[in-house]
Design a protein around this nucleic acid. Structure first.
Length: 271
DNA sequence: GAATACCTGAGC
DNA sequence: GCTCAGGTATTC
């Protein structure tokens, strides 16, 4: 489900509780969600203190006191819930308990596209979960953003979705940022001006920041680690608004398929 | 690039 | 029944 603002919302609700806690038990109900293997994950994190919780793109990175890393990717439908009791809803695949603390960390994932990885050191992190990942989209410096897109001939939206170009943007925020910037999703950076790319940079930052301030978008079932949904879905201008009026000009929002993903845009504002 | 695969469900 | 769904990896 989650793109950068949603993952960051989870990180912010998780960190105040988990940092300093020591993993005491790991229960894995679905082996494929634990990498490199259920045994390696369990042995890697059990007995370890969570030193810090970071994020790169859509990836949560829990730094362990002994130098290893425990990464969590929520895929399309992953949820991390801190609670005293197992959530009633189904699809809880991993449960992590902590020494001297009642609340447990429950990993739910209906579609099973996410999962956890244990990396024993920085090298394993860089060559594993972070391999090929571009710079984090949030706060990405303008000139770096422009240089990563400038001259490219692929459709602009495809590049925004490509985590190798920049990390964290998914289908919602690609569509929303392009609308705000007045750029057509199939436009090609090679044919855009530096000013247009600079505008896109500004609008992308504003979109991500506003979404984060509202706790992310809950299109279907996103909740943070406290179980709270976000509210930014109410501020969406084009995403999943096919046929509804563009908030800027009133033209009906159009839907096409690009890079295999639903793509929503205003044919007038983004013409 | 597109197509396909991985999964389960919601909505029509 | 069918299409679609916030992600990503793999294969032409």
């Amino acid at each position: 489900m989650p793109e950068l603002p949603e993952v960051e919302s989870v990180r912010r609700t998780l960190a105040p509780r988990l940092v300093g806690w020591v993993v005491s038990q790991v229960r894995i109900g679905l082996a494929k969600l634990a990498r490199p293997s259920p045994q390696a994950l369990t042995q890697g994190i059990r007995g370890q203190k969570v030193q810090n919780i970071g994020r790169h793109g859509k990836l949560l990175i829990l730094e362990l006191a002994q130098g290893g890393f425990w990464t969590i990717h929520l895929g399309m439908t992953g949820q991390l819930i801190m609670a005293n009791e197992r959530p009633r809803a189904g699809h809880v695949h991993i449960t992590v308990s902590f020494a001297d603390h009642g609340p447990r960390l429950y990993y739910r994932d209906l579609r099973q596209f996410g999962g956890m990885t244990y990396c024993p050191d920085q090298e394993a992190l860089d060559s594993g979960p972070l391999a090929n990942m571009g710079p984090d989209a949030l706060g990405l410096e303008r000139n770096l953003f422009i240089s990563r897109l400038a001259g490219r001939r692929a459709p602009l939206k495809s590049l925004l979705l490509d985590q190798r170009v920049l990390a964290g943007v998914g289908n919602i925020y690609a569509d929303e940022a392009l609308h705000r910037a007045g750029l057509h999703p199939t436009s090609r950076p090679a044919e855009l001006s530096a000013k247009q790319l600079a505008d896109l940079h500004r609008h992308l930052q504003e979109t991500l920041t506003e979404a984060l301030a509202r706790g992310g978008s809950s299109v279907r079932n996103f909740v943070d680690a406290e179980g709270r949904p976000g509210t930014f879905q109410h501020a969406h201008r084009v995403y999943r608004r096919t046929g509804l009026p563009c908030p800027a000009c009133g033209s009906p929002v159009q839907r096409i398929v690009l890079a295999g993903r639903s793509t929503h845009f205003c044919p007038h504002c983004q013409g």
